[in-house]
Measured scan of single mutants.
Amino acid sequence: VTTYKLVINGKTLKGETTTKAVDAETSEKAFKQYANDNGVDGVWTYDDATKTFTVTEMV
């Protein structure tokens, strides 16, 4: 189990959250659901070296 981080650069929501998951794909699903639940829709990137997802909304 690995800890993954999500950085949110939204128009109205900014911040970070973490989750523990067995792999990046599992954490990505959880993070995308979290973003969707909070009305964040944007461009996703992933940095495997830091286990960090970033979602950026276009303004």
Rank of each mutant, 00 (worst) to 15 (best):
N9V: 14
V43M: 09
V43K: 08
D41V: 14
T54W: 08
V43D: 07
G39A: 06
L6C: 06
Y34T: 02
N36G: 08
V55H: 01
A21D: 04
A35P: 01
T45K: 07
G42Q: 01
V40R: 01
E57Q: 09
N38T: 06
A35F: 03
Y4W: 08
D48K: 09
N9H: 10
K20S: 11
F53I: 02
T50P: 00
K20L: 14
A35W: 02
K11A: 11
E57H: 05
V7A: 03
T56W: 09
T18F: 15
K51W: 05
T17H: 14
D48S: 11
N36V: 14
G39E: 06
T12N: 12
A24L: 11
V7T: 05
M58P: 11
T50D: 04
V1M: 15
Q33P: 00
E28W: 15
F31V: 01
K29V: 09
N38P: 01
E25H: 11
W44F: 03
K51M: 06
D23S: 09
T2P: 06
V59I: 12
V22N: 09
E28P: 01
G15D: 09
T19L: 15
A21L: 03
L13I: 13
F53K: 00
G10M: 14
T18S: 11
N36E: 13
T19Q: 09
S27C: 13
K51Y: 09
G39T: 03
M58R: 11
T2S: 11
Y34P: 00
V55L: 11
D47E: 06
Y4S: 03
N36H: 15
A49C: 09
A21I: 03
N38Y: 12
D23K: 04
D48M: 08
V7L: 09
V43W: 09
M58V: 13
K20A: 11
T3D: 07
V22W: 11
G10S: 12
D37A: 12
F31Q: 01
V1F: 14
I8W: 09
T17P: 03
N36P: 01
K14Y: 09
T3C: 13
V22P: 13
K29M: 10
Y4P: 02
A35Y: 03
F31I: 02
L13C: 15
K20H: 10
Q33S: 08
N36Q: 14
G15L: 15
V55G: 00
T45R: 06
N36L: 15
G15K: 12
N9C: 14
V59G: 13
K14M: 09
G39M: 06
T2D: 09
I8Y: 06
T2V: 12
K5R: 13
D37N: 09
V22K: 13
L6G: 02
T26K: 06
V22H: 11
V1I: 12
T45I: 07
E16Y: 14
V1D: 10
V43R: 07
G10T: 15
W44R: 00
Y4K: 02
D41K: 13
V1Q: 12
T3F: 07
T56E: 06
V55M: 04
T54M: 07
A35S: 04
G10Y: 06
A21P: 01
T18I: 09
A35D: 01
G15V: 14
T52G: 00
F31Y: 02
K29N: 07
A30K: 11
A49G: 08
E16R: 07
G42V: 02
Y34R: 01
T12A: 09
T19W: 12
G42K: 00
G10V: 12
E28R: 12
K11G: 08
T52H: 01
G15H: 13
D47I: 04
F31M: 03
V40F: 10
D47W: 03
L6V: 03
T19C: 15
E25L: 12
L6R: 00
E25Y: 12
K5Q: 04
Q33C: 06
A30E: 12
E28A: 12
G42R: 01
T17S: 08
M58H: 12
E16L: 10
K5E: 03
T52P: 00
V43L: 10
L13D: 04
Q33Y: 05
V43T: 10
A30V: 15
T26A: 13
T52W: 02
L6N: 02
F53D: 00
V22M: 12
K51S: 05
V7W: 04
F31S: 00
K32W: 07
A21W: 04
V43E: 10
Q33G: 05
K11E: 08
F31N: 01
T54C: 05
A24H: 10
V1T: 12
A30H: 14
V43S: 07
G42L: 02
D37P: 02
A49K: 11
T17D: 03
Y34K: 02
A30D: 06
E28D: 04
T45E: 10
A21E: 04
N38V: 14
E57T: 07
T18V: 09
T52M: 04
K51I: 02
K32Q: 07
E16K: 07
E57L: 08
D47A: 03
S27A: 15
E28M: 15
K29W: 08
E57R: 03
T19Y: 15
V22A: 12
L13P: 04
I8D: 01
A35E: 00
S27Y: 03
T18A: 06
Y34Q: 02
Y34G: 00
T12R: 09
T56H: 06
A21T: 05
T19M: 15
T12Y: 14
V7D: 02
T52I: 05
N9D: 09
K32V: 06
V22T: 12
I8P: 00
T26H: 09
T19E: 05
A21N: 05
G39R: 06
T45H: 10
F53T: 00
G10A: 08
D23H: 04
E25N: 09
V7H: 05
D47C: 09
V1G: 10
K20V: 14
V7E: 04
V59L: 12
S27Q: 04
K11P: 08
K11L: 15
V7S: 04
T18K: 06
N38F: 14
T3R: 07
T17L: 15
T45C: 08
T12I: 11
Y4N: 02
T18D: 05
F53Q: 00
Q33F: 05
G42H: 01
K32A: 04
K11C: 14
L6Q: 02
V22L: 12
Y46V: 00
K11V: 14
T54Y: 11
K14R: 12
V40L: 09
A21C: 09
T12W: 13
G15C: 15
L6F: 06
T50L: 07
Q33K: 14
T26P: 01
L13F: 15
D48P: 14
L6K: 02
A30Y: 15
N9P: 02
Y46C: 01
T56R: 05
D41N: 13
E28H: 12
A24N: 06
A24G: 04
Y4C: 04
T45M: 08
K29C: 07
T54I: 08
Y46S: 01
S27K: 01
V40K: 02
A30P: 01
N38K: 13
I8T: 03
V40M: 05
G42N: 00
T2L: 11
E28V: 07
T52Q: 04
Y34A: 02
T56P: 00
G10L: 15
D23Q: 03
T3A: 06
M58C: 12
G10K: 04
K29D: 04
G15T: 14
W44S: 00
F31W: 02
Q33V: 09
A21M: 04
T17G: 04
V22E: 09
T54A: 04
T26N: 06
Y46W: 03
I8N: 00
T45F: 08
V1W: 14
V7C: 07
Y34W: 15
E28K: 12
T50C: 04
T56K: 05
K32D: 01
K32P: 00
M58A: 11
T26R: 06
Y4Q: 02
T56A: 04
E25W: 11
A35M: 09
Y46N: 00
N38M: 15
A35L: 10
A21F: 05
E57S: 07
V59Q: 12
T18Y: 15
D41L: 12
T52S: 03
A49R: 11
V1N: 09
T18H: 10
T17N: 05
V55D: 00
T26S: 11
D48W: 07
V1S: 10
D23E: 03
T45G: 05
E16I: 13
D23L: 04
L13R: 07
D47N: 10
A21K: 03
